[in-house]
Design a protein around this nucleic acid. Structure first.
Lengths: 237, 237
DNA sequence: AAATACATTTCGCGA
DNA sequence: TCGCGAAGTGTATTT
């Protein structure tokens, strides 16, 4: 089910890793230097770190703080163990061309385990709010008729488009948390495009639990509308 | 320097964790169920997973794929070990109010280690490009005079503002990789605001290594400009 | 492969 | 604390 090496020798490390890489979830705790070069560049001095090698090619290097790793490579990376002194892990990918080199100095432990992923269900994302609107169009306003979600334009996908009771074209942008300036800009971009292409009058509506002061100001100035989405009220759906 | 428990009993787990949590970097490999509730909600069925508890309160739970963890809590989270059957790790924070409950079923190993973070230097970020422009204003155009970076407006911070040789006010938005629609919208938002508040003519310039076709179309339609930033050409600075 | 937007985004910086 | 934008963002989806 799992294997553990404590204070392994270089020979042990090398054969352990070459055997298990891409097969099992490997965890290494070791002092190491890390060099990254690709979209940006970084150098990390020798220090103890936690290194995770996933069977899908993911590489993750953590220090003692932050949710984000110090360095990483996403899934699909080619991982090689170089039997040098010091032992080295090279993880590279193309497009974007990026490479991480991990110089292993002192390896305290290595573990490896087979992992089969379980079921995972998540809810409360933006798409769930769009679904709620489609099932309860009156939460936008009386007479609102949803037409298309993910409505495609050259300038981006609109979360939801529909018609109001007067036959006006309605563009809806949904945010799951407090809307900021960027949400208003996003809606405005769609709005400008649709206004050019449609005969009807066009309305742009931002749906969110709240929005920042400046976002509200900008929204009003641009002639757009805001509708509060009360997550409590519709959480039952 | 580090400790390892293999197939520990619940009593061992409990005392090990309560002693080391917030002090050392703890890694647990165990089958577990995970429930998250907060900005969204998720349920993860029983499965073997890697659990990381950092001294800063970070909690990270990984499966065998992806760079992103299955569940997590950012730094500052309050982590408690509940001595129940099964043993449970509860990690919660306020603002936003969020909680993760990890039901530990079978714990295969726990490790713990003291970690002092090393030095880390990274370069190649957006700010480096802005610096390059300030040092080489002619890469925008002959006669360009940079005035203020991170120029503050109610509608966001402008990367760099300056004057062209005719005395026009110039707004510059920099992207380190291929610019997309959102970059154009962002620049346009600043542009509209500055145009309202300034007497002079205003120009908006997007500086990036490239931009998408639709981004270019939108840019032109909105009367904005694009300047290619050749990362090779200036990488020496 | 490219483009687009979401994300429990996280993170850092200012006001 | 809130607001805003960058990030080596990653990830899913659609073209």
């Amino acid at each position: 089910m799992y294997s553990v090496l404590l204070n392994p020798s270089n020979t042990e490390i090398y054969s352990f890793l070459t055997e298990r890489i891409y097969r099992e979830l490997v965890v290494i705790f070791a002092t190491c230097k890390v060099n990254y070069k690709g979209r940006a560049e970084s150098v990390a001095s020798e220090s103890p770190r936690l290194i995770i090698l996933k069977p899908d090619g993911t590489v993750i290097i953590h220090e003692s703080v932050k949710r984000e790793p110090l360095n990483w490579q996403p899934p699909g990376t080619k991982i090689e163990i170089m039997n040098d002194y010091p032992l080295k892990i090279v993880a590279q990918r193309k497009r974007p061309k990026e490479v991480i080199e991990i110089d292993l100095k002192e390896v305290f432990y290595i573990t490896s385990a087979e992992v089969k992923d379980g079921d995972f269900v998540i809810k409360g994302r933006e798409i769930d709010i769009v679904n709620t609107i489609i099932q309860n169009p009156s939460m936008i306003e009386e007479g609102f008729i949803p037409l298309t979600r993910e409505y495609n334009t050259p300038y981006g996908k609109i979360d939801l488009v529909g018609l109001d009771k007067k036959g006006n074209f309605v563009i809806i942008e949904v945010k799951r948390s407090k809307a900021q300036l960027s949400a208003v800009s996003q809606l405005y971009r769609y709005y400008l495009h649709i206004r050019e292409t449609k005969e009807e009058k066009v309305r742009g509506i931002l749906v969110a639990p709240d929005l920042t002061t400046h976002a509200r100001e900008l929204l009003q100035k641009l002639g757009l509308e805001f509708i509060r989405y009360d997550i409590q009220k519709y959480s039952g759906y």
